[in-house]
Amino acid sequence: MRNQSQIFFLFTILSVSSPAQTDWVKWEGKQTSYEIQKNIFSFPKVHNESFGLKIISFFRDTYSTLISDLDGDNCPFFPSCSHFFIESLNEVGIFKGSLMFSDRFIRDLNFFKAKNLYPKHISGKYSDPVINYTLNSEKIKHYPGGILVY
């Protein structure tokens, strides 16, 4: 909770930096929600409906309800390794996806990964998005290490 309010504070500081900019686009009246924000990052679904992926999709469902929901927070990355696997399957298919997962898993095994200076995700983990590993250099989104990303 404390962490969240700090992030919010940072966000407001960044947004005040130039005072007159608020009015550079015409705005309407707006209500801010009183509600407390919840950050829930749910397990991604397998998109592709081919037969091979259906089996993986079945494993994904079983894994997420029977194990992943119950064995706590084990991965220091965002998205976590299993989420990374499903997202990469959706992004580049099963062959490349498996290679990406294998690479990611080994990076997770690395005891000194903190030295690699990943940007920090809002959930407090190392941000390591799938899109940076598809071998498409145009799509890579680089952020300096340690900076807060969403």
Binding site: M1, D69, L70, G72, D73
Partner: peptide
């Protein structure tokens, strides 16, 4: 792993 997960879940669900 499951023992730790159970405690973490209890805390998360309560929050």
């Amino acid at each position: 792993r499951f023992y730790r997960g159970n405690v973490q879940n209890a805390e998360r669900f309560a929050l």
